[in-house]
Structure formats: C-alpha cells, structure tokens
Design a protein around this nucleic acid. Structure first.
Length: 634
RNA sequence: GCUGUUGUAGCUCAGUCGGCAGAGCACGUCAUUGGUAAUGACGAGGUCGUGCGUUCGAAUCGCAUCAACAGCUCCA
C-alpha cells in the first residue's frame, strides 16, 4: 500500500495515498468530521473531497475559520437554489456565492420573490437540510459542461470564459446540479439553521446595462442558537443606526421637500462646529492655509477642468445673464484659480490650500443613504501643489495626519488603492508613475492596502480610507488623490531652482471625507454617546425640587463660565424622570443638586457610563470636565 | 436610475371582510416638591404620503406619483 505523510497541526500521520481530506478528518474523530467545512492543503483552501496524493500539511477548517464559513455559506446558497428549483422550476440560476455575512443567489425568474415566497423557500430549505443529502463533485470537459447547462445562457457564458481545456467542476445534491468551483460541505445536513433575509435587484455581472436579476440573501449557522444570536445582533445594530439616532438626539433630519439634502438641528450644529474647530486646529498645525471658493462658477471653468465632459451627469447647473454656470461638485478648480492669482516659486511648495467646501452633486435617488450619502455636503478638502519629487514625502505626511485624526476617535480604517478607470484623462505612463508613488508611500510607513482596480477618479489614482458603520458596511471617508492632469489643463506654473517654469502636481485629499458622512460614522461608532468634547450638551444640572433651582442656576453659570456646554433642567418633574431623559439623550454628566449640595457647594455627579459617582465641589467638577474636554478624551 | 418592500398623530405602532380614526410615549393644563432610568388626573393632536379612479361608501381595492428602507449601479 502506497502511503502519504500528512502533517496535521505539526502531528505527522500516515494515510493511504489518495485518501480524501474528509477521510482524514473522519479518522481523527467523527466530531471533527461533522464540523469540517473545508480544508487547507499546504496553505491552499480546498474541498474536503480532495484526494491527498503526496506528503503535505493539512488543516481542517470548521465554521470558526473564515474559509470554513465561506464553504458553509456557499453550500447554503446551493440549498437555496435547490429549494427554488423545487418550487419554481422555471427559474434560471446565475451565480450564488458566499459573502462576508452569509450568501446569496442571483436568479432570473418570472416569479417575483416576495417575502411570503421567501418563507416558503426557507421551509423547503429546512426540508432539504433535514434530508441530509450527500453533496457530490465531478468534472466535465467544456463540451459536455455546455451540454449539461444547455438552455441557461448565464451558465453557458461562464463556462465559455473558462480555458478551453479546463476540467469544469460541478456539485450535485438531490436533484440539483450546479456549475461551481467549490469548496462545499459533504452533505446538506451540516447546514443546521438557515434564514432568508431579503430579496433585492442585482444586475447580471454587475453591469447596469445588463438584465436585472433577483438576488435572494440568506444566512446559515451550524446551530439554531447561533442564528438567533446573529439576528439579535442585527437588531442591536439597528439601534445604532445614525438615521435613527440623528432624530432621537436632535442632530439632523431629512424632509421630503429636499431629498438627500440634510437639515442640521441645533445639537447637530454644535457637533458639526466642534468638528470643524478641531479640523482647523489640526490643519493649522500641519501647515495648511485655509481658503474658501465660490459656490457657482462659469461653465468654461468646468470645461477646462474636464468636469463638464466627465462629471456633467452629477452637476447642478444654472443660467446667469444668459450664460451657463455650474454649482460646484468639487472644490479643486476653485483652488486652482486661487493658485493662479500670483506667480509661485519652488520655495513655496508644497503649497497646501485647505477648504471646507460645500459641494452639490446629483446622486442617483436610489443611492441616497442618511448622512452617508447626500446630495449636498461639506468636504474637508485640501489641494496641495507640489513638485514630483515631493510626492512621496507629502503622501506620507498626509497619511500620518489621517492616522492622527482617526486615532483620536478610536476609528479603525482600511486603505484601498484605486487605479485607472476606463473613463480617464492623461497618459497611461503618468498613471503608472502616480499609482506607484501612492503604493510606495503607504508601504513605506508600514501600512498595507487592498487594490481596487479601475476605481480611480478620472484625473488620477487614489488611496481611499474606509471606515465601517454599525452593520460593518464600509464607507470611504479619507481619500488621497494624485493628479497630474488638472495643473496641466490650467497651465499652472512654478519657477524652479534653475529658473525654468515647470508645472506642479496636485494632490486632492479629505480626512473626514465629508462632515456629513463623518458625523454619520461617529454617531454609529459611539452609538450616539459622543466623547464629552463632542457632545452637544456636556452636562445637565438637575435640581431635586423647585427650592433648588436657584442653586442649580448658579452651578450652570459656573460651568458656562468654564466653557462647558451645560443645561439646567428646571421643569417640575421628578428627578428620576429628568435623569432618565438625560441618560437617553446620552448626556455625559448629570449633576444632581439638592439641599446637601446647596449647603456644601457641591454637585452629585452621575456619569452616563458609571452612574452615581458621588458629590464633588463644583470647582473640582469644572476642572475635571475641562480637562476631559481639552484632552479630547474618549 | 434599476429591482423589491414600506408610508396611519411629533415618535413607535394597532386598525379583521370596504361601513363614524385607535393605543402607548411625547406635547398642553392642573395638582404633586421629590435623592439617581418614567408621579397622577384631565386635555389637545390625524384630509390615513400625494393625485386620479372603482364603489352608495376607500386608511382598506386599482393606477400613477413622491419619499423612505434593503440591495445593484454609482460615490465623499
């Protein structure tokens, strides 16, 4: 008998050559076999059915491993497809992958998959899981694969894209067969608890020109309790939703009269202004010069910049004295006009123009999403003009500034490098150099990035800084965009050391992204309980009865004088009622004052986080909260 | 923009088969003056998103439209 040596977590065991990984798992124990979802052979994720033909290291992946989960959910999508096949046999299957949180299947069907139908499908899925059907894998050469999928133009298209000589793999369970690369579980019974979440539209191959399919989303777990825990987590996440909190906390609002255009309420305005104060402090320290450019500028400007050709769909336009003007969707051309006002020397570079620019963009109605995606927003923009030699150093400097800002809020971010899109201006060579410069700068400071091919701006590649919301969806906040095009289009110049005139490079960058999106992110990140320095109301004084109103007022005045945003709740309600309300408003400190406090010149401090923390002298409280605000403590 | 879903009081939501529009919270008045998450009584508040239609009669059925939500596409 020929054997192979298999290393399992450092433990080397011998098996018959050609043994499947499933067989190996079984030999270790039925528990592991049942929990196994996929495996890694010499570091590569594979199917449990893979025969082991040579000595190697094998790792059995369960649901606890991300790749194990992936296989688990991928099988979930096949079970969904089988259920659809049983109940709606005319449906054409397209693609059905696992995603970060579950799986989906894109279906082409005359039937509209309503929530009621999803329930029926879910029932059918449970029946399939209960039957514990074995899942088998086999391969076919292209011609036979095409024959097998005849009549399904989607699968045929996918098969034709594979190499002509490829052995094309299929997975089969019950009466359902799917073209699929795997890996998959060994049988449908392992799926445990399944749930279909919703149905949405999705274009075939992600192209809006193609037919829109129906995408059914689902999730599955090995145990029912895990599914319930997940659904509870989703409910909890909804409570952090900035749209809900924004209303409850009186921060911002939307009206039908202005879809996508936010209204800031008094408390939201305090938050916004506090962020802006902080932004000014940081940018002054990092040598930025603040400017402000007009809201509406002549069409010819946007023609020169290229926006009129490449961004017109998103621009609001108007006519002044019979001439076309555009409401700015971006701030860069304005900054360029400022740069042009006077000649510049290489000694002035990098020249950093900062601008809190209010921009308007006609976003598609379906894309609007609370403060995350609006049609009118303030970018904390900056345009930096510099020489090619200065690029790397400046990008490093910007990335450091970003890190300082995000760290202050305790935000985690991921970086994406977006490269040249189809619709672009400038030569491929320029794009290559610029893209490499960005990549180089990020790696040089020990950060890593994910490549996002073809997603750059039309004028240059960019580094995007993504931050997650309460549901783990990521939103682009910061961006650093390198631009070799605009300065040339405007014939910008600087006088170099050798007295020659040269054209500078431009960097566009935002840290918050937009104040609106950042406020949305912060609201969800803190679940509305902003750090004291950002809280619209930092402390509320609560007199126990009307007798104590005068003292409460004096406490409020003392704190006001110390620069604390304080309110005094003098309504004739019981203390418990006022505390409850202040707590629900996530006010950092509640200062309860009654006879004892009035006599001793103290306040009884209740923190929203730690509850009643006892009485302190008013001056001491003022000093402590001042310190907390000044250090911008989390 | 596309696909699906949802619009009833400021908020959260009931409203059965087409037959007088409902609750809790919030709001107002009055009483209560209190010690760390909701005091009590009374009161006011809605053209049921909007328009057109079907019907003796529409919150309820149909069509259109607006907005929101989930996702796709797009994007800070």
């Amino acid at each position: 008998m020929e054997t192979v040596k298999v290393s399992l977590k450092g433990d080397v065991r011998e098996f018959e050559k050609g043994v499947s990984v499933a067989g190996i798992a079984k030999s270790i124990g039925m528990g592991l076999y049942k929990a196994a979802c996929a495996c890694r052979i010499d570091g590569e994720v594979r199917d449990l059915r893979t025969p082991v033909e040579k000595d190697c290291a094998v790792e059995i992946l369960t649901f606890d491993d991300p790749d194990g989960k992936h296989a688990f959910w991928h099988t979930g999508s096949h079970v969904l497809a089988e259920a659809v096949r049983h109940l709606y046999p005319d449906t054409k299957f397209t693609i059905g992958p696992a995603i970060d949180n579950g799986f989906y299947y894109d279906l082409d069907s005359e039937t509209v998959f309503t929530p009621e139908i999803l329930e029926k499908l879910e029932e059918e899925m449970r029946a399939i899981v209960k039957k514990d059907q074995p899942i088998t894998r086999y391969t076919l050469p292209r011609a036979e694969a095409l024959k097998k999928m005849a009549g399904n133009e989607y699968k045929e298209e996918l098969i034709r894209e594979l190499p002509a000589d490829a052995e094309i793999s299929f997975y089969e369970q019950g009466d359902f067969t799917d073209l699929c690369a795997g890996p998959h579980l060994m049988s449908t019974g392992a799926l445990g608890a399944v749930k279909l979440l919703n149905v949405t539209g999705a274009y075939w191959r992600g192209d809006a020109k193609n037919k829109m399919l129906q995408r059914v989303y689902g999730i599955a777990f090995p145990k029912k309790a895990m599914l319930e825990e997940y659904l509870t987590m989703l409910e909890e996440a909804k409570k952090r939703d900035h749209r809900k909190l924004g209303r409850e906390l009186g921060l911002f609002a939307f009206r039908d009269e202005a879809p996508g255009f936010p209204f800031y309420l008094p408390k939201g305005m305090v938050l916004k202004n506090t962020l802006i104060d902080y932004w000014r402090e940081v940018h002054k320290r990092w040598d930025y010069l603040e400017i402000s450019t007009p809201q509406i500028m002549r069409r010819t400007l946007w023609e020169t910049s290229g926006h009129w050709d490449h961004y017109k769909e998103n621009m609001y336009t108007t006519v002044i004295d019979g001439e076309d003007f555009a409401i700015k969707p971006m701030n860069c051309p304005g900054s360029i006009l400022v740069y042009e006002l006077e000649p510049h020397s290489y000694r002035d570079l990098p020249l950093r123009y900062g601008e809190l620019g209010l921009v308007h963009r006609h976003e598609l109605s379906g894309a609007l999403h609370g403060m995350f995606r609006v049609r009118c927003f303030t970018q904390d923009d900056a345009h930096i003009l510099l020489t090619k030699e200065q690029i790397k150093g400046e990008v490093v400097r910007i990335a450091q500034l970003f890190d300082e800002v995000y760290s202050l809020f305790g935000l985690h971010y991921s970086i994406e490098l977006s490269t040249m899109p189809d619709d672009h201006i400038g030569s491929v060579e320029d794009w290559d150099v610029a893209t490499a410069a960005l990549a180089d700068a990020i790696t040089s400071i020990g950060k890593s990035y994910v490549l996002n091919p073809g997603d750059g701006a039309f004028y240059g590649p960019k580094l995007d800084f993504h931050i997650s919301d309460s549901l783990n969806r990521t939103w682009q906040c910061g961006t650093i965009q390198l631009d070799y095009q605009l300065p040339g289009r405007f014939d910008l110049e600087y006088v170099a050391e050798d007295n020659e005139k040269r054209c500078p490079v431009m960097i566009h960058r935002v840290v918050f992204g937009s104040i609106e999106r950042f406020i949305g992110i912060l609201t969800e990140h803190f679940a509305g309980a902003f750090p004291t320095w950002l809280s619209p109301v930092q402390a509320v004084v609560i007199p126990i009865s009307e007798k104590h109103v005068a003292y409460a007022d004096s406490v409020a005045k003392t704190l006001q004088a110390a620069g604390v945003r304080v309110e005094c709740d003098t309504r004739s309600e019981k203390m418990g009622y006022k505390i409850r309300e202040a707590q629900l408003q996530k006010t950092p400190y509640m200062l309860v004052v009654g006879d004892k406090e009035a006599e001793s010149g103290t306040v009884s401090v209740r923190s929203r986080r730690d509850g009643d923390t006892g009485a302190v002298r008013i001056e001491d409280f003022a000093r402590a909260i001042r310190e907390e605000i000044d250090t911008k403590a989390l």
